[in-house]
């Protein structure tokens, strides 16, 4: 369940982002993260959002909506979430341990170990 928790934490973490970073309303992104975590992983592992671009996710979520009996709003929120997190600036939230001083620290994912060059390794979106 670690990967589900990470995804949910990421959605919550995005609330700390200015709306301009993701281009989406953070409340919708968080709702999408929650809806995604509650529905998609019931049957299968969470796929990495990085696998697909925005237009692909819009179509694939429609395909999955018919499998999982989702409402249109639920599908829309999941699409917003995936289209936000499938890019580095959205995804980087997971690997940024320091929160801005004026912002309460969001529940951060486990800090990955730095490599030899001192850079942090990216975390897979699926938690693998």
């Amino acid at each position: 369940m670690k990967y589900v928790s990470k995804a949910f934490l990421l959605g919550i973490s995005l609330l700390a982002l200015p709306a301009g970073v993701s281009g989406q309303d953070p409340a919708k992104v968080a709702e999408g993260a929650r809806t995604w975590a509650q529905n998609c992983t019931r049957c299968h592992n969470a796929r990495s959002p990085l696998e697909r671009n925005d237009s692909d996710w819009a179509i694939i979520v429609g395909h999955m909506r018919a499998r999982a009996n989702l409402t249109k709003r639920q599908a829309t929120m999941i699409t917003i979430y995936l289209q936000t997190i499938n890019r580095p600036e959205g995804f980087q939230v997971l690997v940024t341990p320091e929160a801005p001083e004026e912002t309460p620290a969001a529940p951060a994912a486990k800090d990955p170990k730095p490599d030899k060059a001192g850079k942090k390794k990216p975390v897979s979106g699926s938690g693998f």
């Binding site: 429609g62 909506r65 018919a66 409402t71």
Partner: peptide
């Protein structure tokens, strides 16, 4: 073919 236009119903 799926029609996804309704809020709570999907027609296939």
């Amino acid at each position: 073919i799926d029609y996804l236009g309704f809020e709570r119903v999907i027609i296939t």
